[in-house]
């Protein structure tokens, strides 16, 4: 499974790099789709169908909205010649990558093997959930019973986002 995951993650990285460098913005958006759908396959391989369903649907709708936006504005990305500020940004980005890689390498050597770690909290969830919530789907039991506050906050974030979109986009209401 780790080989399959590595192949998919390599494809996702290639898609992200292509999306950065594509001249045509429509193909850049579709290359971004590679990242999202690759993540769906990763979730399925890691046995998380709940996350995979949410990810595949949200990715599709985001892709539709992004394609509509690109088709309505320009399809060409304007080319900007890098100046001094651009070179400084590139050098500092490279330094950050090297530093992060170094520290990630140190911290991954301290972890257990891939997929072997079970936290104390999730042990308690897995053992008691079906009896204490009565739900056959463990994820729903955790999301709506043990972590109800999280879910309420998540739903409130969505409501706030809609109110923000309506506030910004209503031209008639502004007059």
């Amino acid at each position: 499974m780790e080989t399959a995951l590595s192949i998919i993650i390599t494809l996702m990285i290639l898609g992200a790099i292509y999306a950065l460098h594509a001249r045509d913005l429509l193909s850049a958006v579709i290359a971004c789709g590679i990242v999202g759908y690759g993540l769906v396959i990763c979730f399925l391989l890691l046995k998380a169908p709940d996350l995979a369903i949410v990810q595949i649907v949200v990715e599709t709708i985001t892709l539709i909205i992004m394609v509509a936006v690109v088709l309505d504005s320009s399809r060409q990305e304007p080319f900007v010649k890098p100046d001094l500020q651009g070179y400084i940004a590139i050098v500092s980005g490279l330094l950050l990558i090297i530093l992060l890689f170094h520290f990630f390498r140190i911290s991954t050597s301290a972890l257990d093997d891939f997929g072997r770690t079970t936290l104390r909290m999730s042990e308690a969830y897995i053992k008691g959930a079906a009896d204490r919530t009565g739900s056959a789907n463990l994820v729903t039991g955790v999301v709506f019973d043990f972590r109800g506050y999280d879910t309420l906050g998540e739903a409130t974030v969505l409501v706030t986002a809609v109110i923000g979109v309506l506030t910004i986009l209503r031209i008639r209401g502004k007059k």
Binding site: V57, I61, N137
Partner: peptide, 18 residues
């Protein structure tokens, strides 16, 4: 069927909106 099979309020809501 959110409490029986994979899925739930968030996933089903986005599918219905689709």
């Amino acid at each position: 069927h959110g409490h029986l099979t994979p899925g739930g309020g968030f996933a089903g809501g986005v599918i219905a909106a689709g």
